[in-house]
Design a protein around this nucleic acid. Sequence first.
DNA 1: TATTGTTATACTCTATAACTATA
DNA 2: TATAGTTATAGAGTATAACAATA
Lengths: 163, 163
Amino acid sequence: MASGTNRTERTLLDDRAAFLLSQIGFHSAARFTERLRPLGLHPRLFAVLSQLALVDGQTQQQLANALSVHRNAMVGLVDELEQHALVERQPHSSDRRAHAIRLTAVGKRLLPRAQKAADELEAELTGGLDAVARHQLITLLRRVAADAGLQPGSHPGLKENWD
Amino acid sequence: MASGTNRTERTLLDDRAAFLLSQIGFHSAARFTERLRPLGLHPRLFAVLSQLALVDGQTQQQLANALSVHRNAMVGLVDELEQHALVERQPHSSDRRAHAIRLTAVGKRLLPRAQKAADELEAELTGGLDAVARHQLITLLRRVAADAGLQPGSHPGLKENWD
DNA sequence: TATTGTTATACTCTATAACTATA
DNA sequence: TATAGTTATAGAGTATAACAATA
């Protein structure tokens, strides 16, 4: 190794998928946060909205399970969404302890804009790959995610944490 | 968990490289943290050690630049490493303001064990792929990282932050 | 005047426990 | 006795500013 301290030297880390995944993964999350900010949205709020788009009217506990967050944390997330008038807490039909969380009209209108932000991020990250390579990448990533036992749609950044 | 809506439904997120990268990336980081814990090491401490293995005797400012962290934060990292006797602050040969951070014998002995932890994580994450697929994945990831302007060896989780 | 290292402080996030009202 | 939701608090992690010594 030369005596000069050049940047651009490769560290041992750069040949490892594990490091590259972590590095790019954090970058992707940070960029998504940036892109959602103009919409007044945080990725974890987007996650809740997406889950409700899948099945509207879920209880907070159901949402917490689906996203692998603690019910305590879900309180704050629903609070935020409700403050922005994106969801409403409605009485649950059969369990008076629970709330049915429903998307409002405002929330439904916001979702496609958030989707667009996600699409643009996807283009930003994979724009350098042709269609074949991009498809290859996604296929490989899904295999890795499945092997790791990661639940589709749930994100380890929303910390798991049980009683 | 009682009355369950079943997981395993696909959300819109699962077909996006951006989400998969973020999801797997956080998982990878969490698993690496786990694997380093028995060594009394945190990933960001490992990052500093690795950087020193590349060029020993760097100043805190140089380390901070290489890893894209603020020099304020580097103080604490070097503190921790010094408490574990993995590095030493030595007087700098030409600049009396600065310290030359050097690996101790203990630190040098620890490094290969940390490398082993990284190797094992690599196997854990990519063990389901054959050699060809694994190589494909790494090639694609390096392309994405380069396109995103990510510096080899620096990690966005160590927040960038300048004066 | 600028830079290296340091300290102190404020701010955000997350984890945990404890409480209520229902079941 | 267990569960849904809530609240309060402590802890970790990060950001910011300001300071002393040296360049």
